[in-house]
C-alpha cells in the first residue's frame, strides 16, 4: 500500500547519476581504446507528470546524448533511469521495446528523420505496423486522426515526405511521435532547423498537444530564448554535466551559475534600444576526452580567479541553494569560505 502511494507521488522520470562515455580508439593496427569522451557525466534530475523540463547548453555539451541515454539507446556507464517507477536499464530487449512505446522522440532535423521512400500514411502509420496493433483500414483512420491533430490536411496521406517543407515535415514527425499515445516525449531541438516564422507555429502546436494529451516533455534546446517559451523547469548543461536546475522564473530572474549568466546575456532582446551588457565567454569548450580535476567551467569562468584554487581542485556538486534551485558552483556551496557565496 505504502509502496503504491510512493510510486504515485514520485515523478514520471527520474534520472540519477547518469553517465555515458564513448570510447576513443587509437590509430594503431588493433585500434586500442586510448580514452573516452565523457559525453554525459553524473547527471541527475527528475521530471514530474505534465511538466516541461527545458534542457539547454551549447552544441556538443551532451544534451542529445542525454536524451538518447534516457531511451537506453546508448550503453550507460553508470546511473539509472527510472520511468514511471520502472528501471529502464534493467529491462530485457523485449520489455524495453514495450516500455519505449511510452517515450517518444521528436527530432531536430525534419529531413533525415522521415524516410523519403515512404508516404505520409506509411510514416505516421509505422508505429502501428511495428506493433501490429490494428488492421489496414483502422490504421488509415488513425493516421488521418493524427494528421488532423497536427494540422495536416487529409489529402497529404499519399504524398511522399519529400514533397513537404521543413515545418510540414516536422508536423508529420510529431504525428508519428504521438501515434503510440506516449506519456513522455523528448523534443530534441524540434524547432532549431526551422525558419523563424515557422518556429512559433510548431512550438505552439507542441504546447497545445501537451494539454490535449497530458504529455510530459523533455525539451532540449541550445539557447534559452526558445526554452523560456515552453518550460516549467530548466536545466543548464555544460560539458556533460548539469550546472544549474531551477524553475523557469527563478532562473531568468536570478541566474546563479556564471555559465547561465553568460547564456542569458546572449539571448537576443527584440528591442534595438536596449543597451545590453553581453558576457562574452573567453576561450573554447575544453575537450571532453581529458580527465580533469576541478570545475569543468574554470577555464572560462570570470569568477575563477577571485575564487582561488578551489575551482581548480574540487569538482563543485549540484546543491540545492534555494527551494527548487540547484547549482553546481563553489561560489554558493559554502565551501569556498568566500563571502561572495551568499546570495
Amino acid at each position: 500500500m505504502q509502496e503504491k502511494q510512493a510510486i504515485k507521488s514520485s515523478p514520471l522520470l527520474e534520472v540519477s547519476h547518469l553517465a555515458v562515455h564513448f570510447p576513443v580508439n587509437g590509430k594503431g593496427l588493433f585500434k586500442r581504446q586510448v580514452g573516452s569522451v565523457r559525453a554525459v557525466e553524473d547527471v541527475s534530475f527528475s521530471i514530474s507528470h505534465g511538466e516541461t523540463f527545458g534542457l539547454v547548453g551549447e552544441s556538443g555539451c551532451g544534451k542529445t546524448t542525454l536524451g538518447h541515454a534516457i531511451l537506453q539507446l546508448h550503453d550507460l556507464v553508470g546511473g539509472k533511469v527510472l520511468f514511471d517507477g520502472q528501471d529502464l536499464g534493467k529491462l530485457s530487449k523485449k520489455e524495453l521495446r514495450t516500455a519505449r512505446k511510452d517515450i517518444q522522440l521528436i527530432f531536430q532535423d525534419p529531413y533525415s528523420s522521415l524516410d523519403q521512400r515512404m508516404t505520409v500514411e506509411q510514416i505516421v502509420g509505422e508505429p502501428f505496423m511495428i506493433h501490429k496493433t490494428c488492421g489496414k483500414k483502422e490504421r488509415r483512420e488513425k493516421v488521418l486522426e493524427l494528421l488532423d491533430v497536427v494540422g495536416m490536411p487529409s489529402y497529404t496521406l499519399d504524398r511522399y515526405a519529400s514533397e513537404f517543407s521543413g515545418g510540414q515535415r516536422q508536423r508529420i514527425g510529431i504525428a508519428r511521435a504521438l501515434a503510440l499515445r506516449p506519456k513522455f516525449i523528448i523534443c530534441d531541438e524540434p524547432v532549431s532547423a526551422l525558419d523563424v516564422s515557422i518556429q512559433s507555429q510548431v512550438l505552439n502546436l507542441i504546447m497545445d498537444l501537451q494539454k490535449e494529451f497530458n504529455l510530459t516533455y523533455l525539451f532540449i534546446a541550445h539557447g534559452l530564448s526558445v526554452v523560456k517559451h515552453v518550460s516549467d523547469n530548466i536545466g543548464v548543461m555544460y560539458l556533460g554535466r548539469l550546472v544549474e536546475i531551477s524553475a523557469k522564473k527563478q532562473l531568468y530572474a536570478n541566474p546563479l551559475h556564471p555559465y547561465t549568466e553568460a547564456l542569458l546575456s546572449a539571448a537576443p532582446i527584440p528591442d534595438p534600444t536596449v543597451e545590453r551588457s553581453r558576457i562574452v565567454l573567453r576561450g573554447d569548450v575544453p575537450s571532453p576526452i581529458k580527465m580533469r580535476t576541478g570545475c569543468s567551467f574554470k577555464f572560462r569562468c570570470k569568477y575563477a580567479e577571485e575564487m582561488g584554487d578551489i575551482c581548480k581542485e574540487k569538482l563543485p556538486e549540484l546543491v540545492e541553494i534555494m527551494e527548487g534551485h540547484h547549482v553546481a558552483c563553489h561560489r554558493y556551496d559554502g565551501q569556498a569560505g568566500n563571502h561572495l557565496g551568499k546570495v
Binding site: 521495446r97 522522440l105 527530432f107 531536430q108 533525415s112 522521415l114 508519428r176 503510440l180
Partner: peptide, 14 residues
C-alpha cells in the same frame, strides 16, 4: 545514421 532509423528503433522496431 539518419534519424529515421533511430525513430523506428524508438518506436520499437527490431
Amino acid at each position: 545514421k539518419k534519424d529515421y532509423t533511430l525513430a523506428a528503433r524508438v518506436m520499437g522496431a527490431g
